[in-house]
Write a protein that binds this DNA or RNA. Structure first.
Length: 487
RNA sequence: GUCCCCAUCGUCUAGCGGUUAGGACAUCGCCCUCUCAAGGCGGGAACAGGGGUUCAAUUCCCCUUGGGGAUACCA
């Protein structure tokens, strides 16, 4: 088997979409599985849609998963350049060759004229397509237009009969009637190629063996096939990956929440979770294995197990993965990952060793409870703030408990804690449980009152663990504060 | 409208003619328990419909329906 060479060819017209990242993953895994090359090529042939920063974002998003490209921007390679805007001569050469051979022609129609016929066709409910006005110009007519310096595009001359077919790896033969195809443009007025020409020429020149791309390309593949044949290029294997759908129907869009890779990074999704989630969107090993490392995936990933139905993006599942991978991290790793969120939120101001150590002890408690790294801000806040707002104090009184009972518990707790030298989880639990026994109260209620006192929330890690981490000073101060509010 | 693709629990999927149709997420119940998680145990939940082919169809073929995609001098 010849060496596998695949490419991911994004256009820098926006930040990388989550669906694009999946395409990257599939390409990469396929290449690595067969010891092949993964190439990154930038399809910047639409100057009007260029978005500043998109190129950087695409690179960063890919690298986030730990994926690198063997050839492409920054990596180099002997099939470059890897920006299509720097390869204009190639496209021009091939376009002209097609014109000379009579399989393409110059079209001098103005966009106004095209617009006009389109509207007419729309009104009479005809198929919308080019009317082939310039298709059969005589040499003289063409020469006259050229002499007049009229701007032109180059169109591919599609046969009016017959069919164009190709093999798609996932769905066998796909057939299109040529009559359905338009005389599509391959070179624009500005001398830039359209996607069709550019990708075919580049895939050939870069010796791409397999084209793994989104399913939305199926309907333009016959155009590519026509080009491959006209240019006598060897056809790559086509693998059209089903697109990721929204749970609300249709393509994944902003209305579904995050769609850009960047947003997931910022919210604190782990690359491991994203990789796992994404690879299982349309691929499965055996229907039961659900956690893979990148290395394992490289070993087991093959095309045979790719499904052909469009999967729905299920954020719940991604969240589940994220929680699982968070729990697999060491406390140290997790603390490093979470600390920037604390800094960003302004909850911790410094990055001293002391704060770090304190933060790690907090992470020990939060580890089991985080879904997103960014959740740390809300959960860890109470460990850093100076005062907790108890409002009018009513939040401190659990159901079926009187204010007096709470007050006496607080007072007695203070006494007990005062004498507690070692604020260990064990000591805290022993002494507080003993206190409740002595008073003949229900543990749940009292612990809840203390929890709210100490954390300001009804939800927290274990009370004794939390108090132990907070330390004697803070706990006592907060109970005193709470007591003051109740008095 | 036209063309193309797809079709197993709510979701991701296993299944590649004969299975009590399996797993995961979500959901529900129970256990653990100071709340919330995590964890453990258990429950409900699917072959879109109709024709064929076959001794036998979830599985192969056709139609219908449903969903998706494409219809640009965008990729």
């Amino acid at each position: 088997m010849e060496k596998v060479r695949v490419r991911f060819a994004p256009s820098p017209t926006g930040y990388l979409h989550i669906g694009g990242l999946r395409t990257v993953l599939f390409n990469y895994l396929f290449a690595k599985h067969y010891n092949g090359d993964f190439i990154l090529r930038i399809e910047d042939t639409d100057r009007s849609r260029y978005v500043e920063g998109a190129f950087e974002d695409i690179k960063e998003s890919i690298k986030w998963l730990g994926i690198t490209w063997d050839e492409g921007p920054d990596a180099g390679g002997d099939k470059g350049p890897y920006f299509q805007s720097e390869r204009l001569d190639f496209y021009k050469k091939y376009a002209e060759r097609l014109v000379n051979e009579g399989t393409a022609y110059k079209c001098f129609c103005t966009s106004e004229r095209i617009q006009e016929i389109k509207e007419k066709q729309k009104a009479s409910k005809e198929q919308i397509r080019y009317d082939k006005h310039c298709r059969n110009f005589s040499k003289d007519e063409v020469a006259k237009n050229e002499a007049a310096d009229l701007p032109y595009v180059i169109r591919f001359k599609v046969s009016e009969e017959g069919q164009t077919k190709f093999e798609d790896y996932l769905r066998d033969e796909v057939v299109f009637e040529n009559a359905q195809l338009d005389d599509f443009i391959i070179l624009k007025t500005d001398g830039f190629p359209t996607y069709h020409l550019a990708s075919v020429v580049d895939d050939h020149l870069m010796e791409i063996t397999h084209v793994l791309r989104g399913e939305e390309w199926i309907s333009s593949t016959p155009k590519h096939v026509l080009l491959y044949n006209a240019l006598s290029f060897k056809m790559p294997e086509f693998v059209h990956l089903p697109v990721i759908l929204s749970s609300k129907g249709g393509k994944l869009s902003k209305r579904d929440g995050a769609t850009q890779v960047r947003e997931f990074m910022e919210k604190g999704y782990l690359a491991e979770a994203m990789t796992n989630f994404l690879v299982l969107l349309g691929w499965s090993l055996d229907g039961s294995t659900s956690m893979f490392t990148m290395q394992e995936l490289e070993k087991v990933f093959t095309l045979e197990q790719i499904g052909k139905n469009s999967p729905v993006f299920d954020i719940e599942k991604l969240n589940d993965y994220n929680g699982k991978y968070i729990r697999e991290k060491s406390v140290k790793e997790l603390a490093d990952l979470c600390y920037p969120y604390m800094l960003d939120a302004g909850i911790v101001k410094d990055d001293t060793e002391g704060t770090r150590i304190y933060f790690e002890s907090i992470m020990e408690l939060l580890k089991e409870r985080l879904v997103l790294l960014s959740d740390v801000v809300e959960s860890a806040k109470c460990f850093f703030i100076d005062k907790i707002d108890y409002e009018d104090g009513s939040m401190l009184i659990p159901k079926k408990t009187s204010p007096d009972q709470v007050k006496s518990v607080f007072k007695l707790s203070l006494e007990k804690l005062e004498h507690l030298e070692d604020f260990s989880v064990e000591n805290l639990e022993n002494s507080l449980r003993k206190l409740i026994d002595e008073l003949g109260l229900k543990a749940g209620q009292i612990f809840m009152a203390l929890r709210i006192t100490v954390t300001g929330s009804k939800v927290s890690p274990g009370l004794f663990e939390t108090m132990s981490v907070l330390g004697k000073q803070r706990c006592m101060a907060r109970i005193k504060d709470a007591l003051a509010v109740l008095e």
